[in-house]
Amino acid sequence: MNFDEFTGQAQHRLGTPGTGETLRAIRATLMTLGQRIPEGNAEDLAASLPIEIKWYLTGAVHEHGQRFDWSEFVERVSEIEGVDPADAAYHARIVMDLVHAQVPESDFQQLRDMLPESESDENWRKLFEIVDAAD
């Protein structure tokens, strides 16, 4: 899938009015995810994405491997995207479902394994609700 197809699908599924809003949702989600996971894992996950999207996971990140929970993830996505946290969480789920469709299952499973699912981490599974609903 190329950049236009990826962003077109994202725009359709997100219901955003334009490409700018769509790219903000994609960028906010993937930059924040890139901050959370180790650099090598971000590169593995990004390898199958369009080059323009791949950069959000790898090149736009200042520090990989930061430790933060689901609520902090949503707050960061919300701030970057400029939307309320409920919309940010929903947008992140849509973006993750699109990423899931593009990357090898082993790379996606590796991502899931990196994100803890304990009560104290407010269940990172929330990020994968749409992916899991389709399975």
Rank of each mutant, 00 (worst) to 15 (best):
M1P: 07
N2H: 10
D4M: 02
F6R: 01
T7A: 09
T7K: 00
G8P: 00
G8R: 09
G8C: 02
Q9A: 15
A10Y: 13
G15W: 08
T16F: 11
P17E: 13
G20W: 12
E21M: 11
E21V: 14
T22G: 12
L23C: 03
R24T: 03
A25D: 08
I26H: 09
R27H: 09
T32M: 05
T32Y: 05
L33W: 01
L33Y: 02
Q35D: 05
P38N: 07
P38E: 08
E39R: 08
E39L: 10
E39T: 10
G40R: 12
N41G: 01
L45G: 09
L49F: 04
I51G: 09
I51V: 15
I51R: 11
I53H: 13
I53A: 09
K54E: 14
W55K: 00
W55L: 00
Y56H: 06
V61E: 02
V61D: 02
E63N: 01
E63D: 02
Q66C: 08
Q66M: 12
Q66H: 09
D69G: 14
W70R: 00
W70T: 00
S71M: 10
E75A: 15
R76A: 05
V83W: 00
V83M: 05
D87V: 13
A89N: 06
Y90F: 15
Y90Q: 12
A92P: 01
A92H: 14
R93T: 09
R93I: 00
R93V: 03
I94Y: 06
L98G: 00
V99P: 01
A101V: 14
Q102S: 10
V103C: 09
P104M: 03
S106L: 05
S106T: 10
D107K: 08
D107T: 06
D107H: 12
Q109D: 11
Q109W: 03
D113I: 04
D113T: 10
M114H: 13
P116F: 01
P116Q: 03
E117V: 14
E117I: 11
E117M: 13
S118H: 05
S120N: 11
E122V: 12
N123W: 06
N123P: 00
W124I: 04
W124S: 07
R125W: 12
D132Q: 07
A133V: 15
A134F: 13
D135G: 10
